[in-house]
Amino acid sequence: MKELKTQLELQAYVDGQLGPLATWRVERKVASDPEARALIARFEALKRMLAANELERCVPEPREFYWSAIARQIELLQLRQRASGKPARPALWLRRLFVPALATAAIALLIGVAALQFNSSPARSVSRHEVVVAVADPGAVTYRDHASGVTLVWFSYPAQN
């Protein structure tokens, strides 16, 4: 008993489906292999029998009408499938659109704030309520009244009228 691959190869040979090189190989094998020859003979007999006894089916409609009806059925089926498909919910659609946008905007805002905070400008190194005093007068005193928004720097500098 030939293995399945060889059987399929021989079957293809009988059906004329092999290329020239494969056909040459099979013919060489068949010439020296009686079992292969017998298998080919069986396949050829089966082929002839099928061709001679194929059941003829008659349809009442003309050929074009018959196939066009099948084509319409297929189209109708496709339309129903499309119609039964759930449309995307608006909320989901909005989420898909705006969530990445908002997330990116938030990141951008953080970058902006960080850029402000860590900017190396000397002005921005002074916080809102920080007072930097460089005085020649060592007796200077700084006082901050947060409630009234007043910063006082008191010098011992003796003004004279």
């Binding site: 002074v126 007072v131 928004g149 910063t151 003796p158």
Partner: peptide, 19 residues
């Protein structure tokens, strides 16, 4: 006499003084 570096937003006062 001295140098003061201070944030001075609108509505606030920076007051320097002495005797």
């Amino acid at each position: 006499v001295g140098t003061i570096t201070q944030a001075l937003p609108k509505g606030e006062l920076l007051v320097t003084g002495g005797n």
